[in-house]
Amino acid sequence: MTEEESTVSRKFCSWVSANRSDASRRRALRWMQLCVTGFVSIVIVVVMWCDWSSPLPATYLGSERSYPPAMNTTHINGKPMERVVTNYTNNIFFTVKTSMKNYRKRLTLLMLTWFQVVDKNKVAVISDSLKAGQLYVSTIRDAGFNLILSNCSNMHSAEALCCKSGAEFGAYYEAVKKHNENKERYQWFCHVDDDVYVNVPRLSQLLQQYDPHKPYYIGKWPWVAHHNHSFTKLNSVRLHRIRSMNYPIKANTFKYATGSTYCLSHALMMEAKQFFNGKDNFYASCRLALFTDDIAIGLIIGVILGYNLTDVNDFHNQYDDMASTSVEEISKYITVGYQMKLKDEVKVYYNTIPIQSPFVKDSTKFMAYHCLLYPSVSWCPRHLPF
C-alpha cells in the first residue's frame, strides 16, 4: 500500500469513527430526552391526581396555608360545622353559583359559616361538572347540601353564566313543584355568588318588609351602570329581538341588580317562569339582552314585565369600598365580599371588611365576620379583637 493510500485509509477510518461517535451521542441524547419527558409527565400526573383526589385543604388557627380547610362530613379542619339557631323567617330558597375549581377554595368556607344559619334543604349549590372529582361531590352532599351539576362550562363567560343561572332558576321551580302543598316554604328566591357572605337575619328582616305575593326584584344597582348607561338602554338590536318574539315593551330603560346577590319574590318568579325556567329558556333570554345573566334578568323584569328594581344599598360586594366602615356598620350589612388578585403569582386578598381576624389565615375575613355575628359558635375565640 502506498503512502497516499495509507493516508486516505486513515482519514476514512477516522471519519467512520467520528460519525459512529456522533450517532451514539445523538442516540444517547434522544434517550435522555425521552427519559426526562417521561419523568416530568409522571410527576404532572401524580400532582394532578393528588390535587383533585386529596381531602379539601386547609386554613385556620396555626395554619400556614391560605386556602380553606380539610373537610369531612361534619368537620372542617377539626372545627365542627356548627348549626346556628336564629329567629329569621325560614321562607327563603338560596342558590349559590360556584365552579369545580372553587369547591375547596370558597365553598368549604361558606359551608362552615353562613350555610350553617339556613335550612340545608333550602340551599342549592349550582356547579358545572363532575371533573373536580367524585370525592369533592360526595363530601359536599354527605354534609347535607344539595349540589347540582349543571354540565355548564366552568369558564367565566356570558354563555356559562347564563347556563348556570338557568339551572339556578330551574332548581327553585323544581323545589316549588315538589312542595306544592306548602308554598309558604319558598316565598323568596335569592341568588348568591360563592365569594359572598350573607348576613341571613338581616336579609330576612329586609324581605319581611315586602309582600312575596307581589312582584319584587330586590338587589343593588351596580356602580358601573351609573356611569355607563349603554348597559341599561333598550338599543335598536335589543328592541328588534324583543319585537321579533312578540313580547310587550313596557319601558325603554331598565335597572338590573349586580349579579353577586339579588332576591325575587315568589309572585315574580311565577310570572317570569317562561323566561327563567331551565338552562335553555334562560339562555334564550340572555340572547335578548345581548349581555350576561344579571343584565338579562333586569331587561326581562324591567322592559317586558314592567317592574322596577328595588335598590338596596346594604347589599355589599367586592366592588364597594370597605376601608372606611365601622364594626357597627358592618354588622348591619346584608352581604359582604372581597377582591382577589395575583401578585407575583401569589393570590392577594384586598378590599375585605376592616376588622382584625383572630385567625392566622382568614384572608377573606369571612370567619372573623361569622364570629362577629355569632360569637357563641364553639370554634370562635372567647375574646374577639374587635
Rank of each mutant, 00 (worst) to 15 (best):
C286T: 07
L147H: 02
R10S: 14
D293M: 01
R202P: 01
W114T: 01
T73V: 12
S157Y: 01
R241M: 11
V84P: 07
V303Q: 07
N77H: 11
D193P: 06
V348I: 15
F366M: 08
P358S: 02
E345W: 05
V360P: 04
T108F: 00
N90H: 07
F94W: 13
T74L: 12
K273F: 03
Q209L: 14
S363Y: 02
M322N: 09
L239V: 03
H316M: 14
F94L: 10
S265K: 03
K255D: 08
G78H: 11
G219E: 07
V346T: 13
H75L: 15
K273V: 09
L234S: 09
V327W: 01
Q205R: 08
V176M: 09
G133M: 08
V84W: 00
V43K: 05
S66P: 04
L372P: 01
F189H: 10
V46E: 11
N154L: 00
A368V: 04
I300K: 01
D320V: 01
A171F: 00
M367V: 00
L61M: 10
K164V: 06
N182K: 14
V84L: 06
A284Y: 01
Y88N: 09
L107Y: 00
P57D: 12
G219C: 02
M245Q: 15
P358L: 03
E82V: 03
N351S: 08
P354N: 06
L234Y: 08
T98N: 07
F386N: 10
K214Q: 15
C50Q: 14
K255N: 10
M322Y: 09
Q318M: 10
H383T: 11
D51Q: 07
F189M: 02
I295R: 02
K177I: 00
K131Q: 12
R25V: 07
S17R: 15
N313G: 01
D128K: 04
T113Q: 05
H229M: 06
L264I: 15
A160S: 15
S363C: 04
Q209G: 13
L110Y: 00
I355D: 04
P358F: 06
M155Y: 08
H240K: 12
L61T: 11
L29R: 13
S6W: 10
N252G: 05
C263M: 10
C371Q: 02
C35N: 11
K79G: 04
